[in-house]
């Protein structure tokens, strides 16, 4: 699939923004100004970006606890996200949700989700809305190798096939569910399991945004054509620990180093477009600098932003409650 230059630039820009955002959050965690914990997406950027390139605001994604990348790729405001992580009133959820509940329904982002396996049923529902209203939209259920083992995912695969829902199950296999290897915890094979439900499935190299873009394109087209669900088994590296406080001692430093040198979606992208003469190195460097500046701006703004008013502790529980 041939991508226009503008698309290439946008893909790199979004991946770079996610990377810088996540590495900055990791650094800021140690400043003590971020009160909660975070689960960072660094290393997995090509997955969210390759998929979201096919989506518009009417398409919905339901995400995971590791949701920053999905949110940025779906168009959520980076300033609002950073302010939310810093627990400020200006945050995208006014400080009520934090890292694990970032959502922007107008952008089709149905929320990061603190429950592993939370997304698949919700995405089935969003896909049902698309089907019943004839909107032509699709829904993406992000989950991981851990979430793929949950009963909610099994039930959702079945329901999506039985109802022929326009849903893409994006199984981001970063090799670890928390501190447990997917090679140990996932019985059988994700693609074969999907086939058991009669759902088309393919394995995708999640460090290659072009590969993800192509596979997601087939899945989205299938959904929009009324042909039902697809499973994408997307293999990605997880650069950081499971959560911000994870010492990550269960992986050797050699393994973690190799991950960064050999499985870096930003480097893979450069190695494809620069020698081919599509984009020159300096332009990509400039994009990196823009991302750094944007994230710096978001952090500065978040630090300066007001904290939530304690009087709002019980607002927005209900639409109305007599």
């Amino acid at each position: 699939m041939q991508l226009a230059r503008a698309d290439l630039l946008k893909a790199y820009r979004t991946m770079a923004l996610i990377r810088v955002f996540e590495e900055r959050v990791q650094r800021e965690m140690s400043s003590g100004d971020i009160p909660g914990s975070t689960h960072l997406y660094a290393g997995q950027e090509a997955s969210a970006v390759g998929i979201s390139m096919h989506l518009t605001d009417i398409d919905r994604v339901a995400s995971t606890h590791r949701g920053h990348g999905h949110s940025i790729a779906k168009g959520c405001d980076v300033d609002g996200m950073m302010a939310e992580i810093f627990a400020r009133a200006t945050g995208i959820c006014h400080g009520k949700g934090g890292s694990m509940h970032i959502a922007d329904l107008d952008k089709g982002m149905l929320g990061a989700n603190g429950i592993v396996g939370g997304a698949p049923p919700l995405a089935c529902g969003a896909a049902l809305t698309a089907k019943l209203t004839g909107s032509g939209a699709v829904a993406v259920a992000y989950t991981g190798d851990g979430g793929f083992n949950q009963g909610t995912t099994a039930e959702s695969l079945n329901l999506a096939r039985v109802w022929d829902l326009p849903v893409i199950f994006a199984i981001e296999d970063n090799g670890f569910a928390e501190a447990t290897a997917s090679s140990w915890a996932v019985a059988g094979d994700i693609v074969v399991r999907a086939a058991g439900y009669g759902i088309p499935a393919e394995r995708v190299d999640g460090t290659d945004v072009f590969a993800v873009h192509e596979a997601a394109g087939r899945a989205v087209a299938r959904g929009r054509a009324g042909e039902g669900p697809t499973v994408l088994h997307i293999t990605v590296p997880r650069y950081l620990g499971h959560f911000s406080g994870d010492a990550d001692t269960y992986r050797s430093s050699a393994e973690k180093q190799a991950m960064r040198s050999e499985r870096d979606c930003l480097k893979v992208f450069r190695a494809k477009v620069v020698p081919a003469g599509l984009i020159d190195e300096a332009e990509l460097d400039a994009i990196d600098a823009e991302a750094t500046a944007a994230v710096e701006g978001a952090v500065v703004a978040a630090r300066a932003a007001p904290r939530p008013d304690p009087a709002t502790v019980a607002t927005d529980v209900y639409v109305s409650y007599p």
Partner: peptide
Amino acid sequence: PITESAFVGAAAGAAMTGL
């Protein structure tokens, strides 16, 4: 199907998207 997690979750997803 007899899959309450999937269809109750789907109801939540459908409700938050306009149904």
